[in-house]
């Protein structure tokens, strides 16, 4: 299974499934990371964490420790 944690900057992926429940999952989804949404990994912070992701047309910063619940698959382009 590939999670958002494994994705390199510059790649584009599609969300397959979100694991977990409660506040953790809900807050991530509230920001627009839901099943079938497309994510573009823009960059990693200078110290290696967090990462910057473009989702639904805006920039969102996420910690690596929070994103292994997001299963993704690569999309072309």
């Amino acid at each position: 299974m590939q999670t958002l944690k494994d994705v390199k900057p510059g790649q584009k992926v599609k969300v397959v499934k979100l694991y977990g429940h409660g506040p953790m999952k809900k807050r991530i989804m509230d920001m627009g990371i839901t099943v079938d949404s497309e994510l573009f990994i823009r960059k990693v912070a200078p110290l290696g964490d967090p990462i910057e992701v473009n989702v639904r047309g805006y920039e969102l910063s996420l910690r690596k420790s929070d994103i292994d619940i997001i299963e993704v698959e690569e999309v072309a382009g």
Binding site: G22, P23, M24, R27, I28, M31, P50, E52, Y58, E59, L60, S61, L62, R63, D66
Partner: peptide
């Protein structure tokens, strides 16, 4: 606190 993710919008 409740385990809550660190999510931050980086506004334009």
């Amino acid at each position: 606190s409740d385990p809550s993710p660190f999510l931050m919008e980086l506004p334009a």
